[in-house]
Nucleic acid binder design. Structure first.
Lengths: 162, 162
DNA sequence: GAAGTGTTGGTGACATGTCAACAGAGGGGT
DNA sequence: ACCCCTCTGTTGACATGTCACCAACACTTC
């Protein structure tokens, strides 16, 4: 027998049992449908994409409404490239702005504009309602607790493994 | 429009409480990290993308390894356009093929090729191992059951609402 | 201080997904 | 046979994400 991390996959794959397979497929299907619905609601209610909302949300939660690009990218789990591209588009729509960084001539500071703040403040109640309607309000307290616990564990595993 | 049934959002938004917010954020974060990891493992082990794997997997689970495009698109929750584009790319790589439909001159039938079958058969054990390692094996039996139950409910809600 | 190393943002080429429009068939009612 | 409506799959334009690479800068070491 092999002692490698995955074991001898070719001759002895450890397939998922019935319950595990149902859970995994269910998760994938929920994920696909839920994302789609949340995205649609957000676009219809506020004209924002998921990505837009996340950026605005993270910026609005900081004290002076501004963050370094790398810092923002890290907390959002985005690549710097992706964020840079997306910020360019949001900047053209007036939702965010770039300031020069005092101490470091390379760095640019991302600032939430007035329009951006208004956008996120108007979008938030609708977004929360959407999340409730399609997910949170459908779950029992026990399921909410379970989701919290298991997601925390999976996230920890994936984060430390890096 | 979509604001019906949400109540008076502007004056009375029902924000998420502490536990709900943790569960929602945890879910979103898990979703992002898990997708990334599974996608990377799949690409490294098999040279396939998530999308490739899903297509091959669905095709291989049918009896004569062939499906109408619309049928495949429906089960995968994909748009016909997306599937058509993606099949064109997979066809160029020799993983699938298109056949003319006997009874319906409009339709095209998607066929799993020999190479496609080999690809999914080689990829599957690694993929299952990846899913186990980063998700399933981290959960208790109760959590698996909870995930199954809640995802089933959310999927049902989103499906019937359409 | 010169060179080597790593960090920060940005850019272009490319892969992928979305949307609207389309041509070509089907299929029912008359 | 004809009109009308629907369905099928494809396509092109466009939005978005990924990847590899770059220029500017900071930090160490010699």
């Amino acid at each position: 027998m092999s002692t490698e991390g995955y074991g001898d996959l070719v001759t002895e794959p450890r397939w998922l049992d019935e319950k595990q397979a149902r859970a995994w497929r269910g998760y994938r299907r929920m994920r696909a449908l839920l994302d789609l619905q949340i995205t649609r609601d957000l676009a219809a209610d506020s004209g924002l994409s998921d990505a837009d909302y996340d950026v605005l949300s993270n910026l609005s939660e900081t004290s002076p409404h501004r963050l370094r690009l790398t810092e923002l990218a890290t907390t959002m789990l985005w690549s710097k490239s992706r964020l840079s591209h997306h910020l360019t588009r949001m900047q053209q729509r007036g939702l965010v702005d770039r300031e020069e960084c005092a101490g470091d001539a390379r760095g640019s500071i991302i600032v939430l504009t007035e329009a951006g703040l208004r956008a996120i403040e108007e979008a938030a109640p609708h977004h929360v309602a959407s999340v409730r309607k399609h997910m949170i309000d459908l779950l029992t307290d026990e399921e909410i607790a379970a989701l919290d616990a298991l997601s925390r564990r999976v996230v920890a595993h994936l984060t430390e493994a890096a």
